[in-house]
Design a protein around this nucleic acid. Structure first.
Lengths: 335, 335
DNA sequence: TTGTAAGCGTTATCAT
DNA sequence: ATGATAACGCTTACAA
């Protein structure tokens, strides 16, 4: 009942072995006699011993923890189902391991660099990066720190970073093609942030599809992946292009906002304006009318990223190419 | 460009001072000459030095990190806006500090005790516990470990743990009273898990209000805070009590499920059955019709919990009583 | 198989 | 104000 936690020395004393033997018994038990092993196990149980990670990490140079980095300037993203999916993917991905998850979020009005500094100072063995913007200097920091890392979503720099992604271009193509197929001629889009690869790629998918169909590609407004942002962008888009008969909002949250704007303007969906979203992470099923969308396998994607990171940490050979997951169209009532 | 990170010794050498002086200069700079300070600052910048936390923590016996513990057996809670709010509250609460956040989630089908063990072994300086169930032995583990901790939501054991809470009884009262006020006579409830204090308290608030109004308190079914669970519970509730003219679902997610069930049965809301939820964390505004609910100030509550924890860590005097935040009714179209 | 001893990178104590 | 020096709790050669 002492106030200070027991140390390895205490265990060794209790088990009447040397500290080294105790250590060996505790870590896998290689080269320890059955008797010693039993004695140590006993002592550990009696004392309620649990190794001091700081001390261990000091000598092993491992921390047994990984970071989930979300360098998102907007705290509201926490509300985004995408992030929830990422979190889920990472926790599922490290289930069964002894790894701890350290959450590195950008903080309200905080000087940049804190995250980079943290990553650089050996407090974690590796990192999963999600919701990554072009401007944050994470990629450079990661390279500098030589920290094993896997991005969820294609990073920007030279192809030195590992990543896993959903095929955003294909997804945007599916969505846009659907609108073309149902006979829409004037198809606008509300993009994601254009400093994120998901934003860029989905815009590209939309544009290429329209070009292939011989339709105009001038109607787009940049959005921010939030519902309110989607509503606002829709106002702008409709003001500039009142003749639109379809909108592809590249996230369901934004599509929800668009729905709101369309409703406010008395436009019927899909009769007047067809609408299609992207993500299918729970939001689409709950809108009225139910949103047609493109399923984004985030959990799967993030689990793959985590698996890759674990491989990296284990010294596995570097995978040749990134894993790219395929999205698919989900029928709703809006397109 | 060496592969190993620079150590304090490197800095000291570079700055031409002793390691002790370097250390002092880095930590607050008490009792260091301006020259020495400058030299060290310079060296730190040149070398890109950042202290090794493990080493530091080994001697200071602090880890500069706190845990957010979510001992929730169901991984799906990650989707719950409540959790999102908690996460938000904690990150906001530690903004401006140097604290790191370690996320401790229950993992799919994992032996219990891992979290307790982790908390007990000095890897974090303190903990915020949310979504706590009676059965998990966290409280005991926390006491045993003498780890500073603050619960978000009243814990069960003897009153030894700090906590912050929303006044669930009052919130449930507001909701139920509203239903009474609009003339409903047969008011059922879908409770939260009854091994959680939020579940227990909201049920109590409902019951007391009905008793005071001279109405029956037999119509309740236990729910699980999820939308699907809410839908299922509503089926059961309506089967058992077809005469209900109002339902209080103690979370908006569950209320959403109830809405679905009512709709499926051709019951109009609020004409046939009035409905009121609890939380107001984004869900209520997006249902059709818009849900009447009770605002739950989670972010605020969790920030308070975090502030309390920081105080504890700083050795502040123990607050006499838990902070209890007050919910309030939010008008919608369903009651 | 076991134990001895040497660090891992910091901070803290105590002379100077 | 500064600098030796001794911990902190652990793992890991290396020797026995």
């Amino acid at each position: 009942m002492s106030s200070v936690p027991p140390t390895l020395d205490d265990v060794a004393r209790e088990a009447r072995v040397s500290r080294s033997t105790a250590s060996r018994a505790i870590n896998g038990g290689d080269r320890v006699s059955p008797e010693a092993q039993a004695a140590v196990d006993d002592a550990v149980a009696r004392l309620g011993y649990t190794p001091n990670r700081a001390a261990r990490s000091l000598v092993t140079r491992r921390t047994d923890s990984i970071a989930l980095v979300v360098p998102e300037p907007d705290t509201l993203v926490l509300t985004d189902p995408f992030l929830t999916g990422v979190l889920r993917g990472v926790t599922d991905g490290i289930a069964g391991t002894d790894l701890q998850l350290v959450l590195l979020l950008n903080r309200q009005g905080e000087a940049p660099g804190r995250i980079a500094r943290y990553l650089g100072s050996g407090h974690v063995d590796g990192a999963i990066v999600a919701s990554h913007h072009r401007r944050d200097q994470l990629e450079a920091a990661l390279t500098r720190a030589q920290l094993p890392a896997v991005f969820v979503g294609r990073p920007f720099g030279d192809a030195t970073h590992h990543y896993v992604d959903v095929d955003n271009i294909a997804g945007a193509h599916m969505a846009t093609q659907r609108l073309v197929d149902v006979g829409r001629k004037r198809i606008g889009t509300i993009t994601g942030p254009l400093d994120m690869s998901a934003g860029i790629d989905r815009l590209q998918g939309w544009r290429e599809t329209l070009e292939a169909a011989g339709l105009p590609t001038d109607a787009f407004v940049e959005g921010d992946f939030t519902a309110i942002g989607g509503a606002t962008a829709a106002e702008k888009l409709l003001d500039e292009h009142p003749d639109l008969d379809a909108i592809f909002a590249v996230s369901d949250l934004m599509a929800e906002g668009v729905l709101h704007t369309l409703h406010a303007r008395g436009l019927r969906v899909p009769e007047d304006v067809a609408l299609i979203g992207f993500d299918d992470l729970g939001v689409a099923q709950h809108t009225t009318p139910r949103l047609t969308t493109v399923h984004n396998p985030v959990v799967q994607t993030t689990m793959a990223a985590t698996a890759t990171l674990l491989g990296l940490l284990a010294g596995a050979p570097v995978p040749a190419a990134p894993q790219i997951f395929r999205p698919y169209l989900v029928e709703g009532e809006t397109a």
